[in-house]
Amino acid sequence: MLADAHAHLLPRDYPADAPDCFPRMEAIDGDTARLLLFGAMRFRARDAFFDAERRVEEMAASGVDFEVLSPMPPLLRYDLPVADGLSLARHVNEFTATLCATDPARFAGLGMVPLRDPDVAAAELAAMRESGLAGVEVASNVLGASIGDERFLPFFAEAERLGMAVFVHAMPSATDRLPASAMGTYVVGLEGAMAAASMITGGTAAKCPGLRISFSHAAGGFGLMVPRAQYFWAGTWNEEAPVPERAIAHDGGPSPLEYARRFYYDSAVFDARALRYLVDLLGADRLLVGSDFPAMPREEPAGRTLRTLGLPEEDLADILWHNTFRYLGREAPPCPA
């Protein structure tokens, strides 16, 4: 059994009378794929993005039994006017809920919100839950502001109150320190680390202890960043007992690693050595399978590298199946036939 907690979808179409700032999906002659047009973006979206039957076929071919579906990240356009962003979110959310309802034993859906206005975003969560969505996807920054900034706390508090899962997808922000060619590689890793760190340093992790939140691509470089924060908090190496008189940032509260172990992280890190480190540092109960499918090809079969790590059977079963449902706040269902 395998659950993929990081997979994406795109609506097949958008309303004919939608504002000009909405995306468009156009047919491609002689192809089941469609062309996504969104601002400067031109993306060939193959049919698995929007066709539930095709998704199930491709899941079966890769050994995937369950997917958590979230909007393709470029749809998270926080630069749109709030009213337009809300209309776009509602359209995408309706499509997501409808697709997932075709086979609830195989799909759970995450919606989207115009997070540039945290109050509007928070107010939308109850309706999303009522429609059957299990949670919400947000970008790692909102127009350059870290998601751990206190202005976004009411949104995360409402997600916690409603029991909705939050998926943080790393999204590049403007930078002149690396070339544009690094936006999808190194910058995404930096963004994931900054987002996870900001949830701790901004106080959201402390104020929302029950929030179920996951980070794409294991929050980038966060796994190597947090031991340094742990050292400054404890004054000791190797997570040894803190010595407050030697610590620089000891506050008497949970340690950085304790906060980090409240989060979930997907396994799309592309290397067995990285996975071993994450299991050792954060725990097998914190990792989820993630693929970015169909925006990126899945490892074939899905979870192949995880299965080479020699993990105890219980730990492997947690990562491949049970952790996804704990993250969603659901009981793990029996594997579909």
Rank of each mutant, 00 (worst) to 15 (best):
S216T: 13
R46W: 10
A16M: 07
L86I: 00
E57T: 14
M72S: 01
V64S: 06
L311C: 11
Q230T: 13
L125Y: 03
A165D: 05
D149C: 03
A206T: 10
G109K: 08
R77A: 13
E191N: 09
D31I: 11
R44G: 03
M171W: 14
S140Y: 00
P81C: 04
V142L: 06
R54P: 06
L278I: 05
L35W: 12
A27N: 09
L133V: 08
M164A: 12
D84A: 15
A89Q: 07
V113Q: 07
D29T: 11
P81L: 02
I319V: 12
D149M: 04
A126V: 09
R161N: 06
E137N: 00
W233S: 09
A284M: 03
D176K: 13
A52G: 01
Y186D: 13
M128S: 12
A197N: 15
T305N: 06
M59A: 04
V92G: 03
G253A: 13
Y327R: 15
P334W: 03
G163W: 02
L178W: 06
D119M: 04
A195W: 00
Q230R: 14
S181E: 13
F95V: 03
P118F: 04
L35Q: 11
P71D: 00
L110R: 04
G329I: 05
Q230F: 09
A219P: 02
Y265E: 12
L37H: 11
R286Q: 09
I147C: 06
Y327P: 14
